[in-house]
Structure formats: structure tokens, C-alpha cells
Write a protein that binds this DNA or RNA. Sequence first.
DNA 1: AGATATTCGTATGCATGCAAACGTTAATTG
DNA 2: CAATTAACGTTTGCATGCATACGAATATCT
Lengths: 143, 143
Amino acid sequence: MTESQEQHYVLEEQVGYLLRLANQRHLSIFAEHIVDGLTSVQFSTLFRLRNEAGPMSQNALGRLVGMDAATTKGVVSRLISRGLIQMEKDPTDKRRYMLSTTQKGRALIEDTLPRMQQISEDTLAPLTPHEAKQFVDLLKKLT
Amino acid sequence: MTESQEQHYVLEEQVGYLLRLANQRHLSIFAEHIVDGLTSVQFSTLFRLRNEAGPMSQNALGRLVGMDAATTKGVVSRLISRGLIQMEKDPTDKRRYMLSTTQKGRALIEDTLPRMQQISEDTLAPLTPHEAKQFVDLLKKLT
DNA sequence: AGATATTCGTATGCATGCAAACGTTAATTG
DNA sequence: CAATTAACGTTTGCATGCATACGAATATCT
């Protein structure tokens, strides 16, 4: 009886534990499909910036992708050093840099997009189509 | 028509993107509930080691928690430096160290376990009980 | 037995991810 | 308008997480 509580806690059934493993698995699948060193987060960031109407600040972009300022700094720096995005001073706000995609960055998005669909499919492969839709919907509700 | 493919790719509906955000959210909830610096991975590792019958090697423990050897090394080192687990040489295998929990480690598990249930509940709070069960089941299928 | 594979732990480098602190600049508030 | 607050970008420190490489020891195979 004293051990009843612990008996109930099964690691393999906890959301946190499972979320971590599911995320790991997805990142592994992502790495298999992407030949150049582009990471999942880098793609998300680049894609978001391209889909925005105009240039935007670093912090604002980070927020749109779910990253804090410190993380954003690193991701953006790597995208800049690879020549995928560019930054220029904001004339109206001396604190800010305005970010935009380069031609090379937009071309990379075009090349990568077809593979992204496959990555999502592979990640959801253990589920039936109906379950996959359910899962994504529940994930959306959770965010 | 040329843009039909890109139009279909909506970042907020991709499993990978959503998994990343869901995981972030859970880690944030975890940090709120745990006062000492224990992390989610550290708890999982400590818990797994405690629930094993006897001492076990570092790499074997890491595998049980879903970590590679390099990651395991860091996690175990931190648990040792906090006095939560201990290691001693394996007499039969000169490469190996056998790990086991300390009294302090087991006590910490006891203290933490009641909060883990709440953390899982909070993580799943946006879902109905039925949806939560569905979600966890789908996550299990995915792993 | 001897050669080969594998496994052990370790180390380095790189990429997220967060907390905390910092100086600069803009916005808000009194 | 002056003082406070907030936002901008940056840096540091720490914790996962993976790839890769390494020497040492064990297992396996021929």
C-alpha cells in the first residue's frame, strides 16, 4: 500500500517523456532527408521570414517561430553566415536590424519544400491517416 | 498555380514544428513545479535507475532513457556531483562502472513523485480527459 | 589462438533552448 | 518634460542532444 503511488508512475506513459522521444525521432527523420546542414529550426525560421510581407526585426521573427531572444540570435547568425538571410539597419529605430531573405535563401526554401511533406509523413508513418490527423489536431490544441 | 505547393505548407500544421512547441511548453511547466534544479531528463534517469533491480552500466541506463552515450555522460555526471547516484568499478568488466542511486537520490524521487502527476496533468490541461488519453496513446504508438 | 567486431566510457564540436544580466534606444507615464 | 518602463540586440552560463573520434577492454568469428 505504501508503494501504491510509485507503482502508478510509469515513465513510458508520461506525456513529457513521450514528447521528448517523439521530438527526437522527428529530428532524426529530418536529418535523414536534408542533405545540407540545414536544421529543422533553421528551416522554420527561414520559411517564416520568407512568408512575411516585408523585412522584420530579429526578435519579432524569433517570436513567430517560438524562440527566445538568445536562441534567435544564434539561429539568425548561422543563417546570415550561410548567406540565406541578410540584415540592414532600421532607419527609424536605432536598436533594430531588419531581416530579409536573400535570393539564395529563397532558392533553398524552394528546393527544400518538397522534402518537408515527406518528412512530416515519415514522422507520422506509425499512425493511420485518421490517427495522424487526430494527433496533429491534438498537438495544435496543446500549443 | 505555380504557388500551389508552397501554399499547402503551413508551418503551424506540421508535426515537427508542433512537437517542438509542445515539448517546450512541457519543459516550462516542469520547471515551474520543480524547485531544486532537477531537470526532466535528470528525473527520468534517476527514476529509471532506482526502479532497476540492481546497479547498471552508464550506457545501459542511457539507452533505457533514450539518450546516446555522449548525452548520458553529462546527465550522469551532474547526478553524481549532486550526490544522487554513485558509481563503482565493475569487478568483472574493467571498462564498466556500475551505477546505483544513493539514499539522497531515492529520497529526492520520493519527494518529487507527487509533483510529477501534476506536471503531466498541467501539460495535458488544454485537452479533455478523453483527448488526453488519445494523445498519450498516439504518442506511444509514435515511439 | 589470432584477427576482427563490438562495447565501454570519454572527449570535442556544434546546435537548440532558457535564465540572467547588460547597454542602448524607444515608449509610456507621471 | 522628466522619470520610469519597456523593447532591442547581445553575451554568458548551463543543460540536452547528436556526430564523430578515440583508447581500452570484451566478444565474436575464423
